[in-house]
Design a protein around this nucleic acid. Structure first.
Lengths: 243, 243
DNA sequence: ACGAGTATACTTGTATACAAGTATTATAAA
DNA sequence: TTTATAATACTTGTATACAAGTATACTCGT
């Protein structure tokens, strides 16, 4: 598999990844970004040719993406589902569902170590903002939520997160890249929300947590649509560079 | 792939399934039943030899089972996680979580068709009980819950269900096979609970629904442990037949 | 011109071959 | 006996080959 210059997915996150994982990550981001449009029919052979790999890693990728609800495997070809507004709302439904569940569990356990870890992550986010590193910021943002979820040690909640995570990662990645270019002023509020989240956990304050969660969602969800179109234009731009 | 006489998974559910799906289903049930014990390290080559298939369908199966949290893919070999009491409780946590979410949505939509469909399924369950067909009963039981979940048309809730379903199916299958042999008197109550669930949906009665859901769980969950040991003995018996 | 039937170019699913890396075991030296 | 090193027998990941089935398109007959 040659290293494409026009990969959307951060190359440095794929250093020790297998070919199958590379294809999966890249294909996922192309679908989420809209570069590959909903309704497109993907053929294993064509994808294999396009990525200059065999069908094995392609099959692996398609199976993974199907489990993430991004494509639908049919008799002849894989149909791209993609992310409409409806799907994005549904993703946030599920995030709200599991993070609320997690918070209820947090009320019952020791959270000192957790809050220290979360504070560290917020510091990392600040540095990422300072150096305008969208990818690093996204990584820390995802890590923030994953750290909270992992802390309650619930394997089936973690299973849900594992299925949701890659799509969330893609959404946040694209969203943050756009913000660094066009809405840099958003970041103080995003940071503040994360700090509020930590405070809510420390105070074991359910209302505060729900509020910060909603603010967080409004922050990302409310503006996803706009960022969406911009991101699509960006993706198209990349595409055209290679025509 | 030869057809094993000692398959745990219902053969008639696999008629039009691929080899990969057959291996997945059988392997899953062997893990859930405890035939393959927690901590066992599975090798692709050995499994391929055991099932008399190539590594391709085996790899597919292992990847699927890993996404269902039944095994953990590591550098050398796949480690069986299996289902401890903790995992079973966690599965029911998630079921409670999503079915509660679904019920909230049901309050807002037209549920006439749904309740008719559910009533039909309950009738099917009665027939299955009458003819002591544990597998058919399990199928209808799973279908009952899937029908409810599908009715709200929420692709990411459905995604969670799709990940949970195979394990639930296995649990219910093993549990029901045991009941038909040892606890036949349980079925009137199980049926009644399902009818109560329908009533709750019709009446849009949240409390009633939660109650029937809890009863349902107590029914299955509370007795899973006992049935568990019996099932393991059954599985061992099957194993010994083939020594 | 139009329909039936066949040929062809696809599709997926499975088997096999190969490469690269890892753990284990055996052997040799101290 | 113990330790270090090398050979061997594993492991997974990827590529390729093959089989069976499906849709498309084309040709032939009417």
């Amino acid at each position: 598999m040659t290293e494409f210059k026009d990969f959307l997915y951060p190359q440095k996150w794929l250093i020790k990844a297998s070919t199958g994982e590379k294809v999966t990550s890249e294909l996922r981001l192309r679908i989420i970004s809209g570069w590959i449009e909903s309704g497109t029919i993907l053929s294993e052979n064509k994808l294999a040719a396009e990525f200059s790999v065999s069908r094995s890693p392609i099959r692996e990728a398609l199976k993974t993406l199907a489990s993430e609800n991004l494509i639908r495997l049919e008799r002849m070809g894989a149909v791209v589902i993609g992310l409409t507004d409806k799907e994005i709302e549904e993703i946030y439904d599920v995030r709200l569902l599991i993070e609320t569940f997690v918070f209820e569990r947090l009320l019952k356990i020791e959270i000192t170590e957790l809050t220290i870890e979360l504070s560290k992550i917020v510091e990392m986010m600040k540095v990422a903002i300072k150096y305008q590193d969208a990818d690093e910021f996204s990584y820390q943002d995802i890590l923030f939520h994953e750290t909270i979820i992992r802390s309650i040690d619930h394997s089936y909640i973690l299973m849900i997160w594992n299925n949701l995570k890659p799509v969330m990662e893609g959404l946040i990645l694209l969203s943050m890249r756009m913000r660094f270019k066009e809405k840099y002023e958003d970041f103080p509020r995003i940071l503040k929300n994360h700090e509020l989240y930590i405070t809510a956990i420390q105070a074991k304050d359910r209302k505060l947590m729900v509020q910060s969660l909603h603010d967080n969602f409004d922050d990302v969800q409310g503006k996803v649509e706009d960022l969406w179109k911009s991101q699509q234009m960006l993706a198209k731009g990349v595409e055209q560079q290679n025509d």
